[in-house]
Design a protein around this nucleic acid. Sequence first.
DNA 1: ACCGGTTGTGCAACCGGTTGTTGTTGTAAG
DNA 2: CTTACAACAACAACCGGTTGCACAACCGGT
Lengths: 337, 337
Amino acid sequence: MKRNPATLKDIAEKLGLNKSTVSRALKDHPDVSQKTRDMVKRMAKKLHYVPNTVAASLRHKKSKVIGLLAPQISHFFLPSVIEGIEEVVHKYGYNLLILQSKESYEREVENLDILIANNVEGIIASVSRTTTDFTHFQQVINMGLPMVFYDRVVQDINTDVVLLDDTSAAFDAVSHLISKQRKKIAICTGNINLLISRNRLNGYKSALKNYGIEYNEDYVISCEWPEEAKRKTIDLLELPDPPDAIFAISDLTLSGVMQAIYSKGLPVPNDISVVAFCEEPFRSMYNPVITAIQPKGLEIGKTSAEMLFQRIKISPFADPEPRVVYLDGQLIVGGST
Amino acid sequence: MKRNPATLKDIAEKLGLNKSTVSRALKDHPDVSQKTRDMVKRMAKKLHYVPNTVAASLRHKKSKVIGLLAPQISHFFLPSVIEGIEEVVHKYGYNLLILQSKESYEREVENLDILIANNVEGIIASVSRTTTDFTHFQQVINMGLPMVFYDRVVQDINTDVVLLDDTSAAFDAVSHLISKQRKKIAICTGNINLLISRNRLNGYKSALKNYGIEYNEDYVISCEWPEEAKRKTIDLLELPDPPDAIFAISDLTLSGVMQAIYSKGLPVPNDISVVAFCEEPFRSMYNPVITAIQPKGLEIGKTSAEMLFQRIKISPFADPEPRVVYLDGQLIVGGST
DNA sequence: ACCGGTTGTGCAACCGGTTGTTGTTGTAAG
DNA sequence: CTTACAACAACAACCGGTTGCACAACCGGT
């Protein structure tokens, strides 16, 4: 019972018209008489005509598709970002093609080609953890394809970028701990290749410096996964002079840190305080609720998409100045400090 | 500096060949001599040729794209499903176009047309909460487009379906509580319009019955959001004869339940035990780690995709028997029981 | 009857890759 | 020295919608 969807030609033949007339009629082109338009539209509805965007896309090279290149659809951050992007993309009548690089440089390169091959009109990207060479991105930009980076960005690249102001958010988080009389503050950071990790670490350092607390390398651990964070946090807590506060720079590391604290049975925040970067629904799953910086995934998604559409809508000849947008990550105080 | 990507014609002209020859050379068609193939491939690499899948798609009506129609990209369940689907889709060399219906019937219908317009080769769908008329799905199936439903399924429709065996998983969860000497077991269920909620409630009831425990309506609350769950759970805990165990049927309700328990300061599992349907990374964010049924989002995603590809790969004339696959939601014991 | 201008529609090329068919070589068999 | 048939490459149509241009029909004005 395979039945192909109706095409312009089908409508044209039924009505004894040419497909070009049908095409124009359906988009209310003024060249076509009102009578013909009505006739065509009625027939189109009757045949349940769905215009083939693939064909249209081939012709005018506009696919109405935006590509999203993400490292991983993890549970914590990306869903918020996608939600934000999707909202804007839908508003503009576009669709979203999502590809994961799975933190692999090769897949990232491959995925960029896939997006190009699919005639996407713009790309929103976050860089894989293992990527150190960024020429593939630069090539795409040189092709004139609008591109916006979020979260994990490429330095010295000639396009828009949306970020959390990580350094100052981290500064605020650590300052908050200090205001609660904490002096022995540990940080659980991520893969130090990532700008995010470095920036958050820098915010941590400058907060310490600002309040005259000495930076202690023993209090710095770097972890990519909860298990690693748990293990290394336990090591921290077993130091002769253990920290009295921990700053976890992501939801994933936070999970490990809290498991470690739970396992040692330490009361929070009495024996140890905790702050983290953590999305809203997750803060309150811990006991006590975590004092956290909002990573603002939703806003990052929305902003990236809006900036991308600004680039798409303007003439391809105009090459707007690359913009860097910093969003403020607000600190929300919970019971953990 | 707008530069369009190289096409077959570009390569052909540079080499004094015809584009058809170039096309065949690139796919190692035996009609083309080895020498020509090498020459073409070298030139293709040099020009960074990326085949335009849109054009190919138009020709042979294979877009290498699968459509995913989901109600909402929430944090808890869908990311796992997407991850699973993506893995399989990538394995087959396909891509994923994701659309959200946002629980709206109109958007669901619209999204189906978008998927068709994009020549998707198959659709994986979960039905919106507000959809009561399913003819749009049936139309798509009649067009011969392979389709698989997961999680929220359409009854009496002529295609494959992937589900968790909710009833028996809920039965197991409650039986586990009973085996831990719990007799006053409350349930925090979801929107009772959803089959899922009803099935999990039924599993709960039959477990009680099976062990001769009387069903008590005071112990049944129905909640859609964490706040609601928290409020109603507090009411439960303040009953003259409060429950000694709670069964939360989703991550969202679990979050509210735990907040309530935390706020009352009740020791878990001593005063109150907790089981829930909860994805892996979230169980261990609670203290103690929650005993939970795995909703198996990843497996549901993988299975749906695999079943879809089975339908895609077989001849379109063969119309395989619709299959219903139930996945077992395994109970993983944590410290909460 | 003749002209300039509008209106509505048809024709054909095009986007870029695919594919059935045809055409041109070269080589070996008869 | 034909004839036969590979082997290889060119040609052209096609997918379905879009779009510049041609063209026919019709209008009122001279």
